[in-house]
């Protein structure tokens, strides 16, 4: 996903160039922060080992695209294309992602943690295979092109980026407040107790599988929303773009770097990882030639090293979850 690459690096030397890059960067950060908050509900609070984040990212993006895009043209072949308002697309994306999560969760959420990871990473591969191989479904490898922009018919030109930034940041704030509220509620407390010890939670009469399902579906719906915003921001998506590195591993890194079970941590982790991931190619110019054209591989190596270092030396992340103990103690 190298859309933030500056085609001519001298553009960065101008004030407008810097500004453009920075606005685009913040928009991307906001979307990834939403994804990280969603994964934090699943993994950070509940301990659901979802290695298929990209599945819901993809389902959300495609659903919103299919509902809002126009009918297929001569060389295109996809279902729907209803030209509905984008807000409706977002809504549909959340519902569809939630339903997909429910279907995935029914057979898999009872599994032990590492089995769940294997199953979810498998589902991501299958969804990609279905999108790539099914004729007349989502336009196969050609992908969906010309997805409408959010408020694209109202604002256009160079000011548009500010509108998009405002919308994504607002969505992030709403999602953050919502997640913060529900994870601090008694419901969130049950989730944390499942994470710490599922057997004990069961013993006090909580239907833990049901709670895990609720957390899984809620997280997936928010991931779907993130995917929907992504689709309208990119305006074209294709199955290959939703790979495990970009759509799953990067988001996991955000949560691990930020701190499991801490919403502030998830947002912070998203910011740090986005800075690292999208800022890294900017060093290309300062690298010797032999390394300069390997900048993307260097970036992947660095992010791999980064997560391993965090797991080894800072397993609680930069903003660890505050231990919540009863105030009567």
């Amino acid at each position: 996903m190298d859309f933030l690459i500056i085609e001519n690096s001298y553009l960065l030397l101008t004030a407008t160039g810097v500004m453009n890059w920075f606005v685009g960067f913040l928009t991307t950060f906001a979307i990834f922060a939403i994804m990280a908050l969603a994964l934090n509900i699943q993994w950070g609070f509940t301990g659901i080992f979802n290695f298929g984040v990209v599945s819901f990212f993809m389902v959300g993006a495609y659903t919103s695209a299919l509902f809002t895009i126009g009918p297929p043209g001569e060389y295109e072949n996809y279902i729907m294309g209803f030209e509905l308002p984008i807000l409706f697309g977002w809504f549909a994306a959340m519902i569809t992602s939630g339903i997909v999560a429910l279907l995935i969760g029914l057979p898999t959420l009872r599994l032990q943690r590492d089995f769940l990871a294997i199953a979810t990473i498998g589902i991501a591969a299958i969804l990609r295979a279905v999108a790539l191989s099914t004729e007349g479904f989502v336009n196969r490898a050609r992908g969906m092109n010309g997805i409408p922009r959010i408020l694209g018919d109202v604002v256009s030109g160079p000011d548009y980026k500010w509108v998009l930034l405002a919308i994504t940041l607002t969505t992030l704030v709403i999602v953050y407040l919502l997640v913060e509220k529900i994870t601090a509620s008694p419901w969130g407390r049950v989730l944390r107790s499942i994470r710490e010890n599922e057997e004990t939670t069961k013993s006090v009469g909580k239907d833990t599988v049901n709670y895990r399902m609720q957390a899984f579906v809620l997280g997936a719906m928010i991931m779907g929303l993130g995917g929907a915003i992504w689709a309208h921001r990119m305006t074209s998506i294709d199955p290959e773009a939703f790979n495990d590195l970009f759509g799953t591993f990067l988001i996991w890194t955000m949560v691990m770097v930020g701190g499991n079970g801490s919403n502030k941590g998830a947002v912070m982790g998203a910011f740090l990882c986005c800075t690292f991931w999208f800022g890294f190619p900017l060093i290309q110019e300062s690298l010797p030639d032999i390394l300069g054209n390997k900048v993307f591989q260097l970036r992947e190596i660095s992010i791999g090293v980064l997560i391993i270092l965090f797991l080894l030396y800072k397993p609680n992340g930069v903003i660890p979850e505050k231990p919540k103990i009863s105030r009567h103690l």
């Binding site: 301990g47 080992f49 290695f51 943690r113 590492d114 990871a117 590195l245 591993f249 996991w252 691990m256 390997k294 591989q297 260097l298 970036r299 992947e300 190596i301 992010i303 791999g304 090293v305 997560i307 391993i308 797991l311 080894l312 397993p315």
Partner: peptide
Amino acid sequence: LRRDKSNIVTMAIASLGVGIIIRAVVTM
């Protein structure tokens, strides 16, 4: 990670990281 009594999940994530590094080094 074993010594720190990290759970199997932490080790699985670390292994995914190892995989990504290998893939990037080979591609390089």
